[in-house]
């Protein structure tokens, strides 16, 4: 089992969701985060005081999948989020030691689907 964490542009969320549904990945968690990589932020000015706003609003996706879904999930995220510009985001893949479905207390790969 793997946990896939992706950081994407906020206005690409709907596209990525569509692609994930097409790839039969229906279980995702989305949260709003701040971050930056190579993309430069926007300097904000408040009543004349400049503030280096180098953190930009990003969306973070977490998707737990069984091994056979890893590649198709990555492909779907790339397809939905890629524009070719800096700031498109990044995907991280972690090993998942255990997964528990709270309602039934099932564990392991059957709890993920």
């Amino acid at each position: 089992m793997k946990l896939i964490i992706a950081i994407i542009q906020p206005d690409k969320l709907e596209d990525v969701k569509d692609e994930l549904y097409h790839a039969d990945v229906n279980l995702i968690t989305v949260s709003e985060v701040m971050g930056h990589g190579r993309q430069k932020g926007v300097t904000e000015v408040y009543r004349g005081a400049k503030e280096m706003g180098n953190l930009l609003r990003k969306i973070r996706l977490e998707i737990a999948v069984n091994e056979e879904f890893v590649e198709s999930t990555i492909k779907a995220i790339v397809k939905g989020a890629k524009t070719g510009e800096t700031g498109d985001g990044k995907i991280f893949i972690l090993d998942l030691a255990e997964c528990v479905r709270i309602r039934t207390e099932e564990r392991g790969t059957i709890a993920i689907g």
Partner: peptide, 21 residues
């Protein structure tokens, strides 16, 4: 198109209405 994605607040006025953190 890029400014539209970023939003008018930052693109046109360089200020944001809400902080995330």
């Amino acid at each position: 198109e890029k400014e539209e994605s970023l939003g008018l607040d930052l693109a046109q006025h360089r200020e944001g209405a809400y902080t995330v953190l």
